[in-house]
Design a binder for these strands. Sequence first.
DNA 1: TTTCCGTGCGCAATCGATTCCAAAACACCA
DNA 2: TGGTGTTTTGGAATCGATTGCGCACGGAAA
Lengths: 343, 343
Amino acid sequence: MKLGQATIKDIARELNLSVSTISRALKDYPGINRETKRKVKEVANKLNYRPNAIALSLRKSRSFTIGVIIPEVVHFFFSTVISGIEEIANSRGYNVILSQSNEKLDREISSLETMLTNQIDGVLVSYSKETKSFDHFTRVMDQGFPIVFFDRAPAIPDAVNVMVDDYQGSFDATAHLISQGYKNIVHLAGPKTLKISIDRENGYKDALEQNGFPVNPAHIISCPLGTLEESQELVSALLASLPRRPDAFFSCNDIGAVGAMMACRDAGLRIPLEVGIVGFSDWQFCAMLEPQLSSVSQPGFMMGTRATEILLDIIEKKLDPKIMEQSLVLETKLMERGSSKRF
Amino acid sequence: MKLGQATIKDIARELNLSVSTISRALKDYPGINRETKRKVKEVANKLNYRPNAIALSLRKSRSFTIGVIIPEVVHFFFSTVISGIEEIANSRGYNVILSQSNEKLDREISSLETMLTNQIDGVLVSYSKETKSFDHFTRVMDQGFPIVFFDRAPAIPDAVNVMVDDYQGSFDATAHLISQGYKNIVHLAGPKTLKISIDRENGYKDALEQNGFPVNPAHIISCPLGTLEESQELVSALLASLPRRPDAFFSCNDIGAVGAMMACRDAGLRIPLEVGIVGFSDWQFCAMLEPQLSSVSQPGFMMGTRATEILLDIIEKKLDPKIMEQSLVLETKLMERGSSKRF
DNA sequence: TTTCCGTGCGCAATCGATTCCAAAACACCA
DNA sequence: TGGTGTTTTGGAATCGATTGCGCACGGAAA
């Protein structure tokens, strides 16, 4: 904040009026002389006056700022969500303050604490992979502080969540692979701390069973890191070890799917002829690969806009979290591309 | 901001002390009885007291918040920069408020205005493609407000900039293509409103000339949109029209390079045998393509950290923008991969 | 007993803007 | 000229925390 910034006092001094008059004139209150208003605005303009939002926040006990806590910004899906959040927040006159936990619990906690200290009006959270207890959230929620969770829904009763239908997305992806004639479908699964991982795994399992395929535990590979190298190595090892070669991979994320793609290519397998691959999230690059990677598209931007709308409605008392629908589930869409289409 | 939040007044009432005593006790000022301090802290804890940063901001005329204005979040490079900004800001006790201009000038202006109203201590800016006049920046800079520009350096004398060496990066990329024996190198150029576009084009031209190749104007293709489709179409058209077929493409961004890659593939050209391709930015997906895309890597995270360090140093008066080095130029690194290596 | 000093604490101003409650200033009528 | 009503403006409290100044109170020295 610049020190030389003009305040209403400066305008008042210049015109020999009281601050109350200035305040009312600037806001076009009735009961102020038309000529006075004109002069006040003229001087305000001349002094380059800008209202001090901090002073307003203090007075109104409202900062018109919402916080966003996410695992990481450098992530196509999350940055898309942020974009949606920004869009709605801005259009409704709110600022967005951002903090990434880097998937660390302690950073998540300190971010929340800092934001509360800064009197934010509410917060949007996608919690970290490390987070197993949600006490730091429930403590502030119990005091009536508005929190909306997105993508990753916590195990908190009465929490307001905005998610995608991970189960159905997974189910669709797996069913698609089955319909393309793949018979030994491996699932690259995410960390069990995240509900989305569990949902995705369940969608995979149910799709298999409902199509008459037994679930083979050896076909569920845990990929806790979620890196390309991890899945590439795991898939390579799998291809070399399993007696009956897998002929399809459904990964819980796109990076893992690319790793599988590379491992298959290294093993000399043709995609999609000999191996089918489907990812999850539909990152930008899916359509750039050769063959193009099939993936479950998540409406990230919409998740951001909807979550923000709900949060702001709660903040502005248009919605009561206690009596509202607790979860909003957005639909996914399977993008069928070259990596999984044999016909 | 929650209404039920405890303040020092509440603590004062509970202990029958004055607010000044509470304030001093909480901050461990000398001259307060040891036992009093203990009790104050105990009650503060019991009431779940959290200091009101807004009140502090008002008093100190410092918000400990910096603003970031970028064209878009959903952009690998920018999100990497944000990550770096966040890192330093957090470690030095500052919040980050974010706003994206979506490459629109009016949004850029209103974002800046809102941030100033919110009394941010300084701002980091990468201006939009639409921005041709920089008056909205110079006006506040002239009042002594700290602004640091990153990636896209404006035509403002005395502005503090943190950029990468776009010229050298381009030069290296083009020289690399030449060294691989490519002889008809086309450049996919960005919008001329951005200094980075011009620098990259100049690097390309100089590398050609210094290696004895004349610059062919027909080999410089303007790609104002920067989309995959745009470059794909332009490159396809080029391949069909030019009498002497281009044998290499150096794109000012990775998306454009992928478009070129697709167009070449559509034309039945083998990469890198018949056509070499190099991009700029080194997005995540470059290493996932087949063949892997060569690209000029920009240190986005470091750009974020360095720009933030400089901004905070200026804010905290450790640096004076008037007497400091105006520009910090970070080095790029050419990632030579399959799309351009014939030998 | 008076003076002096250190300890421990309270009063009140301050940051910028809003807003309730009055109070001037003026016009108009009787 | 006094009363009434309207228009226009000012005073002061308020939001939460900080901080300079000063005031009690106690014990110790004179």
